[in-house]
Lab assay of single mutants.
Amino acid sequence: TGYYDVLGVKPDASDNELKKAYRKMALKFHPDKNPDGAEQFKQISQAYEVLSDEKKRQIYDQ
């Protein structure tokens, strides 16, 4: 599964769309709200870390 799929956004998503999707998913799977969501929360955080950084995103998109 790709990072875009993890966040539920298209590859041409804007920074604002990425942030909005990340916040929505992070709230849904945060371990405090969803004890079984810890692994998914890590994936969401990693996806956002890469896609929100312009240089990392360019490398990922290659």
Rank of each mutant, 00 (worst) to 15 (best):
residue 1 T to Q: 12
residue 1 T to E: 07
residue 2 G to R: 12
residue 2 G to C: 15
residue 3 Y to L: 12
residue 3 Y to I: 04
residue 3 Y to T: 02
residue 3 Y to C: 12
residue 4 Y to C: 06
residue 4 Y to G: 01
residue 4 Y to N: 04
residue 4 Y to L: 03
residue 4 Y to W: 04
residue 4 Y to D: 04
residue 5 D to E: 13
residue 5 D to R: 08
residue 6 V to H: 04
residue 6 V to I: 15
residue 6 V to Y: 04
residue 6 V to M: 12
residue 8 G to N: 06
residue 8 G to R: 04
residue 8 G to L: 04
residue 8 G to A: 05
residue 8 G to Y: 02
residue 8 G to S: 02
residue 9 V to T: 03
residue 9 V to I: 09
residue 9 V to W: 01
residue 9 V to N: 00
residue 9 V to Y: 00
residue 9 V to A: 05
residue 9 V to K: 01
residue 9 V to D: 01
residue 10 K to V: 03
residue 10 K to A: 10
residue 10 K to G: 10
residue 11 P to H: 06
residue 11 P to Y: 10
residue 11 P to F: 13
residue 11 P to R: 10
residue 11 P to D: 04
residue 12 D to A: 06
residue 12 D to V: 04
residue 12 D to Q: 05
residue 13 A to W: 01
residue 13 A to I: 06
residue 13 A to C: 14
residue 13 A to N: 00
residue 14 S to D: 12
residue 14 S to Q: 02
residue 14 S to P: 06
residue 15 D to G: 11
residue 15 D to F: 15
residue 15 D to E: 13
residue 16 N to T: 12
residue 16 N to S: 14
residue 16 N to E: 15
residue 16 N to M: 15
residue 17 E to C: 08
residue 17 E to W: 05
residue 17 E to D: 11
residue 17 E to S: 03
residue 17 E to F: 00
residue 18 L to H: 02
residue 18 L to G: 00
residue 18 L to C: 04
residue 18 L to R: 01
residue 19 K to S: 08
residue 19 K to M: 12
residue 20 K to W: 08
residue 20 K to G: 07
residue 20 K to M: 13
residue 20 K to N: 13
residue 21 A to V: 04
residue 22 Y to V: 00
residue 23 R to Q: 15
residue 23 R to N: 14
residue 23 R to T: 13
residue 24 K to T: 09
residue 24 K to V: 10
residue 25 M to C: 11
residue 25 M to E: 06
residue 25 M to G: 07
residue 25 M to Y: 04
residue 26 A to T: 09
residue 26 A to Y: 14
residue 27 L to Q: 12
residue 27 L to T: 08
residue 27 L to C: 14
residue 27 L to H: 09
residue 27 L to N: 13
residue 27 L to D: 14
residue 28 K to E: 08
residue 28 K to V: 08
residue 28 K to N: 07
residue 29 F to C: 08
residue 29 F to T: 01
residue 30 H to M: 05
residue 30 H to S: 09
residue 30 H to N: 09
residue 30 H to L: 07
residue 30 H to F: 05
residue 30 H to D: 11
residue 30 H to W: 05
residue 30 H to V: 01
residue 31 P to Y: 08
residue 31 P to L: 07
residue 32 D to T: 10
residue 32 D to G: 10
residue 32 D to M: 10
residue 33 K to R: 13
residue 33 K to L: 14
residue 34 N to L: 05
residue 34 N to C: 10
residue 34 N to Q: 04
residue 34 N to W: 08
residue 34 N to T: 08
residue 34 N to E: 04
residue 35 P to A: 06
residue 36 D to V: 06
residue 36 D to S: 11
residue 37 G to R: 07
residue 38 A to Q: 11
residue 38 A to D: 08
residue 39 E to R: 07
residue 39 E to I: 08
residue 39 E to L: 09
residue 39 E to H: 08
residue 39 E to T: 12
residue 40 Q to L: 14
residue 40 Q to E: 10
residue 40 Q to S: 06
residue 40 Q to H: 12
residue 40 Q to C: 15
residue 41 F to I: 04
residue 42 K to P: 07
residue 43 Q to R: 14
residue 44 I to G: 00
residue 44 I to V: 10
residue 44 I to S: 00
residue 44 I to H: 05
residue 44 I to F: 02
residue 45 S to Y: 11
residue 45 S to V: 15
residue 45 S to P: 01
residue 46 Q to D: 10
residue 46 Q to W: 10
residue 46 Q to R: 11
residue 47 A to I: 06
residue 47 A to H: 00
residue 47 A to G: 01
residue 48 Y to A: 00
residue 48 Y to L: 05
residue 48 Y to F: 09
residue 48 Y to R: 02
residue 48 Y to N: 00
residue 48 Y to H: 01
residue 49 E to M: 09
residue 49 E to C: 14
residue 49 E to I: 10
residue 49 E to S: 11
residue 49 E to T: 10
residue 50 V to Y: 07
residue 51 L to N: 00
residue 52 S to L: 09
residue 53 D to L: 04
residue 53 D to M: 02
residue 54 E to K: 15
residue 54 E to V: 15
residue 55 K to R: 14
residue 55 K to G: 09
residue 55 K to Y: 12
residue 55 K to D: 07
residue 56 K to F: 06
residue 56 K to I: 05
residue 56 K to C: 12
residue 57 R to N: 04
residue 57 R to M: 06
residue 57 R to P: 03
residue 58 Q to L: 12
residue 58 Q to C: 12
residue 58 Q to W: 10
residue 59 I to Y: 11
residue 59 I to H: 11
residue 59 I to F: 09
residue 60 Y to D: 00
residue 60 Y to E: 02
residue 60 Y to L: 03
residue 60 Y to M: 04
residue 61 D to A: 05
residue 61 D to M: 04
residue 61 D to I: 06
residue 62 Q to D: 08
residue 62 Q to G: 08
residue 62 Q to T: 08
